[in-house]
């Protein structure tokens, strides 16, 4: 059974006709061409596919678009504004927090939700916020550093 849905993604309204059991992850990647959202397990175990729904981190592999009418969805493609990178994106690039880069979109969005909630998180709070996002490359060190740097820069705009 297919459903006709209206989804607001990165500030743009999209009308899609998709099978009702198709996940948000699949609709984003396959119907909207937003391949910045990655998958690591499609079972809700790794955090790789995290997007923001009304500002909160959601595992898109477990979310169904039929439930999301009227919601505001943000993917990694929507983080930069008018060609200007989000401070998290800037810091991740500068500090080497993205190695293979595959877990990066999910971590960026989870961190964005954290900073919206707690603009000056402690390192432990960052660890706790990102505990559901697996990264196999970095040992998390540069990721924690980058979130700290971004928080600092958001607090004191350059």
């Amino acid at each position: 059974m297919k459903a006709r849905l209206s989804l607001t993604v990165n500030g743009e309204a999209h009308d899609v006709l998709v099978p009702v059991h198709k996940t948000l992850l699949e609709v984003l990647r396959e119907d909207l061409g937003l391949t910045g959202t990655k998958h690591g397990c499609e079972l809700g175990e790794c955090g790789t596919c995290t997007v923001l729904v009304d500002g909160a981190p959601v595992l898109s592999c477990l979310a169904l678009p039929v439930d999301l009418a009227g919601a505001t969805i943000t993917t990694v493609e929507g983080m930069a504004e008018g060609g200007r990178l989000h401070p998290l994106q800037q810091a991740f690039a500068e500090l080497g927090a993205a190695q293979c880069g595959y877990c990066t979109p999910g971590i960026l969005l989870t961190a964005q939700a954290l900073l919206a909630d707690r603009p000056s998180p402690t390192r432990q709070e960052i660890r706790e916020a990102l505990a559901g996002n697996l990264c196999r490359c970095t040992g998390y060190t540069k990721i924690l550093d980058a979130v700290e740097l971004a928080a600092l820069r958001i607090g004191v705009p350059r």
């Binding site: 937003l34 910045g36 959202t37 493609e77 690039a93």
Partner: peptide, 10 residues
């Protein structure tokens, strides 16, 4: 890294 920019914007 030269490819960092593409990676952080997906």
């Amino acid at each position: 890294k030269i490819d960092a920019w593409a990676k952080v914007i997906g």
